[in-house]
């Protein structure tokens, strides 16, 4: 732990001057316009009701939150929305775990490659972003469907006799999520690996540490900020994702993202959708606050 503290570079605690504030203005405006204001609107809506046509009626009510927490049929605490959220969190956690296992070595390989090859490798990671994620998800459907490319190939080569049911399963949902989020994990981790000073690793070896110990005591702590950034960038959006999960999962076991989207479009119950959204935001904030506090006390 001593090692940890000496390496950690704490930013200079200084109050920003006028010039600093001026530089930050676009960022602050952006945050206010696209984060603070929409969240405030959600908060207001979440206490409203809907009319016959699905328009928002400004009539204060706790009803939407009650519907999230208390089952109206049985009167018990705990509803289907909890089950759905838990399922989404499990999907997201699994996705993040696989991204960590697959993404870290890839980021390491790119970050330690000769400098002129790094850009080429990074471009390869980014190429999928040149087309919409929807198009790429449809491509997966073509590959995985019962009469799709993969099954046809496996049957043609006599590896299987009957087609595999791959699409519209939880496995397909997680595959879609991993495929889409992996680059988001690789990039921040790559950033911290690229900055890693090779002489520190050499020093560790010179002082008698083996590869595992060097990784544990030197490499991992130094690349930790990148890993945390990667986890946050993958885990949180993956919980709320609806497009991929709907297309690859067939809507059988909806994720919380699908349920919220459904409230805004099909059910046209914006207040309830807003209440679900607000609950998720508070959940994320609580998790973030908890982990931040723990990091400080360690």
């Amino acid at each position: 732990m001593i090692l940890n503290e000496t390496i950690e570079t704490t930013p200079q605690q200084r109050r920003p001057g006028i010039f600093g504030w001026l530089l930050m203005t676009p960022m602050i405006l952006w945050l206010v316009a696209f984060v603070v204001v929409p969240t405030a609107i959600l908060l207001v809506y979440s206490f409203c009701q809907r009319d016959e046509l699905g328009q928002v009626v400004y009539h204060f009510s706790w009803e939407n939150y009650r519907r999230i927490f208390i089952d109206s049929d049985t009167g018990h605490f705990g509803t289907v929305y909890w089950t759905i959220t838990l399922r989404s969190v499990i999907y997201a956690a699994f996705t993040t775990g696989v991204c960590l296992l697959l993404g870290y070595p890839v980021a390491w390989f790119i970050g330690r490659a000769p400098e002129r090859r790094r850009n080429l490798l990074l471009t390869l990671v980014m190429i999928p972003f040149w087309t919409s994620f929807l198009v790429r998800t449809y491509a997966w459907i073509t590959i995985l469907s019962t009469d799709g490319l993969l099954n046809s190939f496996l049957q043609y080569t006599h590896l299987i006799s009957e087609p595999f049911e791959m699409l519209y399963t939880p496995g397909a949902v997680v595959l879609g999520l991993i495929y889409n989020y992996l680059p988001f994990f690789i990039l921040p981790v790559y950033g911290s690996i690229e900055k890693l000073d090779g002489s520190l690793i050499e020093a560790s070896f010179d002082l008698g540490a083996g590869p595992l110990r060097t990784f544990q005591r030197v490499i991992l702590p130094l690349t930790w900020p990148g890993i945390v950034a990667g986890i946050l960038i993958v885990f949180i959006p993956a919980i709320g994702m609806f497009g991929i999960t709907q297309l690859m999962g067939g809507g059988i076991k909806p994720t919380i993202g699908e349920v919220i989207q459904n409230q805004f479009l099909q059910a046209r119950d914006w207040p309830f959708g807003a209440a679900l959204g607000m609950t998720l935001v508070i959940l994320f904030a609580a998790v973030y606050w908890f982990t931040a506090r723990r990091q400080q006390t360690v």
Partner: peptide, 20 residues
């Protein structure tokens, strides 16, 4: 025909069954 606010009950019924 238009069902007004009962749309909410329909949504709840199907979400409950799908989400379990």
């Amino acid at each position: 025909s238009d069902i007004g606010k009962t749309a909410k009950d329909i949504d709840k019924l199907v979400t409950d069954l799908k989400g379990q």
